[in-house]
Design a protein around this nucleic acid. Structure first.
Lengths: 140, 140
DNA sequence: CCAGAGCATTGACAGGCGTCTATCTCGTCG
DNA sequence: CGACGAGATAGACGCCTGTCAATGCTCTGG
């Protein structure tokens, strides 16, 4: 089940010197303080990062993510995402839930419609984690 | 099976204006010209990017990757990677093969030992693909 | 030429997960 | 107040894949 709930990017063991421009859970993506290419990941760190990566390592979810991110206002309801994907509504809803639990998007229910929005620094934090040499000018 | 061979990051449909500093298959990681957050991914693009992400969306492979990247010379043989992971040698060999097919690392067999090295721009290209706004300072 | 070691490959098993159909909840409208 | 519609949930099915034990291949050393 996907009932693993919010076990993806939130329960960081030690959010030491994080928090600069990555707001909320975005910086807590298990990334942030885990450059991946600087020091060997521990089993726990690897598992948390893998959880977030698993969330986006699915074609359907990647397309959902890109659709939401490509939105100008950043808002997209399920009905708008179902058709271009060619998947059923429950399936899309399931994928969106996984992305929400991974901390990549956020749900905003307005009336009958549910609008999904990208979490500001989420993808940036994830990308920074995968970047070999972040931005430190002392790397090379 | 992992017999999908080199179907991961190589067969890009249209490598239009790529190639700047991402050498070889690194830039061809299906990433490069696919910012993910700018325009909705096509089914084909999503599938290729997902293939690369799947390769690293596994704790064991993330740790292998980080171990190899953390190496100074960047060379690491299988025997060096097996013990700290707690996995059997065939399993490690399998994971390494997946990473090689994804274009993230490269194999260099010297005599009896097989040394694995990170592909220079691979992770950077992947990270760039996931970055919402590459370098535009209009984000926050 | 033979023995040994390091890796890769094969086959098999188990768990996870993406997808669907069916159903439920809840907010809206007549 | 009753009916409709959008979205979420539950349960089930099937494929994919991470893992291991066993084996084969290739190169080194004597």
């Amino acid at each position: 089940m996907a009932t693993t709930s919010a076990s993806a990017g939130l329960p960081i063991p030690a959010p030491s010197e994080c928090a600069d421009d990555t707001p909320g859970l975005a910086g807590a993506i298990s990334a942030c303080c885990t450059p991946l290419a600087r020091t060997p990941l521990s089993a726990d760190e690897a598992e948390q990062l893998a959880a977030v990566l698993k969330a986006i390592a699915v074609p359907a979810r990647l397309r959902l993510l890109s659709m939401i991110y490509a939105r100008d206002g950043g808002e997209a309801c399920v009905c708008e995402l179902t058709e271009p994907l060619g998947l059923t509504q429950p399936t899309v809803s399931h994928h969106l839930k996984v992305l929400v639990e991974a901390g990549l998007i956020s749900r905003d229910k307005r009336g009958v419609w549910a609008y999904y929005r990208p979490v500001p620094g989420a993808m940036a934090a994830l990308a920074a984690t995968l970047t070999p040499a972040p931005a430190t000018a002392d790397a090379a």
